[in-house]
C-alpha cells in the first residue's frame, strides 16, 4: 500500500488492517499500522529484548561456579545466546521507531519492564536447572505461539530464537536429569529450587486474562491466551517432573479429564504487581549494576561510534 497517496481515513485503514491480520497476512515494518498496534508491538518486543539482557545476569553468576568444565562451557554459551537474542530483538523493535540506545537507557532507568522471573535471586545449581528446564520451557511455549504473530519481522526472528531456546531447554533437561538420577543431595537441591520457583513460573504466564480486552490478541500479534499457554506448559512439564519423583507446591494441581484441563491454585498476584512497579527482590540491585556498567563503559561506546582512524595509512 502506497502510504504517501493513501488518503483514506484512519478508521478505514484500521478496518482494512484488521481484515488483513484476521486473514493471516503478515505486517511488515514499513506497512501502515494503527498507532496502537505499533506501540503495542514495540512495547511487547522491547520487553522481550529487555528480559534477555536482564535474564543473563542471574545465570551468568553460575558460569564461574559451574561444577564441571562442560557445564562451564554450556552455561557460557547459553548466556551468550541470551545476549544474542537481546541483540536480535532490539533490532526488530528499533524498526518500529525507537533507537536501541534509548531502549537500553529506559531499561536501566527503570522506565521499561522485563519478565518477572528475572527479578529473583539464584541460590543453588538447582536454580540453574529450574531456569534451564522450567523457565526456558515456559518461554519456549510462549515463543512458539508467537511464531504465528501477525508482525512478520518478529515472527521471523523468533524462528532463530526458538531454535536456540529449544537447545537451551534440552540442556536444561539434561541438567535436571543428572540431578534427579544422582545423589539424594542433588535430588533435594532440585526439589528445593522447584519449590522456590513455582510461584514465579505461574506468575510468568500472567493472570487468567480476558481475551476480548487484549488488543494484541485482537490484532493477532499474540495468538494464544495466557491460560492456553499455561495449560500447554502443564501438559509438557508436569508429567516429566512427576516421572522423576519431583512435586510442585500446589496440592490442587492435577488434570481434570472431564473439564479437559489442568486444575491449579491461583497464586497471590501481589508479588507480580510489585515487580511491575519495579519492586522485585533483585530489581534495584540488578538495574543499579547495569547502570554502573553502562556508565563505566561510556568511553568504549565513544570508540565504537567512530570509524577506525588512520585506516588509510
Amino acid at each position: 500500500m502506497d502510504t504517501d497517496t493513501d488518503t483514506r481515513t484512519v478508521e478505514s485503514k484500521t478496518a482494512d488492517f484488521q481484515i488483513r491480520v484476521e486473514a493471516g497476512e503478515k505486517i511488515e515494518a514499513s506497512d501502515w499500522m494503527p498507532e496502537g498496534y505499533r506501540q503495542g508491538a514495540l512495547k511487547f518486543i522491547e520487553m522481550h529484548a529487555n528480559s534477555e539482557i536482564m535474564g543473563a545476569l542471574p545465570e551468568r553468576e553460575w558460569i564461574a561456579r559451574a561444577p564441571s568444565l562442560r557445564r562451564k562451557l554450556s552455561l557460557t554459551a547459553k548466556v551468550q545466546d541470551e545476549v544474542g537474542h537481546g541483540h536480535l530483538l532490539y533490532r526488530i523493535a528499533e524498526d518500529l521507531g525507537k533507537p536501541r540506545a534509548a531502549m537500553i537507557e529506559d531499561l536501566i532507568a527503570g522506565k521499561t519492564k522485563f519478565h518477572n522471573v528475572f527479578h529473583y535471586p539464584t541460590e543453588t545449581w538447582g536454580d540453574v536447572a529450574v531456569i534451564g528446564f522450567l523457565i526456558d520451557g515456559a518461554a519456549l511455549v510462549t515463543q512458539k505461539a508467537l511464531l504465528d504473530s501477525s508482525y512478520g519481522p518478529y515472527a521471523r526472528v523468533l524462528k532463530r530464537i526458538c531454535a536456540e531456546e529449544s537447545l537451551h531447554q534440552r540442556h536444561g533437561e539434561d541438567l535436571v536429569l543428572e540431578m534427579c538420577a544422582g545423589t539424594d543431595e542433588q535430588r533435594a537441591m532440585f526439589q528445593d529450587a522447584v519449590n522456590r520457583w513455582w510461584v514465579p513460573v505461574m506468575h510468568f504466564f500472567g493472570p487468567p486474562s480476558k481475551p476480548t480486552l487484549d488488543p494484541l490478541l485482537h490484532w493477532r500479534f499474540k495468538t494464544a491466551t495466557n491460560e492456553e499457554l499455561r495449560q500447554r506448559f502443564f501438559s509438557l512439564y508436569i508429567p516429566k517432573l512427576w516421572d522423576m519423583g519431583i512435586t510442585v507446591p500446589d496440592p490442587a494441581l492435577e488434570y481434570d479429564a472431564a473439564a479437559g484441563e489442568w486444575a491449579w491454585t491461583e497464586p497471590d498476584w501481589e508479588p507480580l504487581r510489585r515487580i511491575a512497579r519495579g519492586d522485585g527482590p533483585m530489581t534495584e540491585t540488578r538495574l543499579a549494576w547495569r547502570r554502573w556498567i553502562h556508565e563505566a563503559h561510556g568511553w568504549v561506546r565513544l570508540v565504537m561510534a567512530e570509524p577506525e582512524r588512520a585506516a588509510a595509512a
Binding site: 512427576w242 516421572d243 519423583g245 519431583i246 512435586t247 492435577e254 488434570y255 481434570d256
Partner: peptide, 10 residues
Amino acid sequence: LGAVVQRRRP
C-alpha cells in the same frame, strides 16, 4: 525411591 507422583495427567 517410591517417589513417582501418582496424580492424574492428560
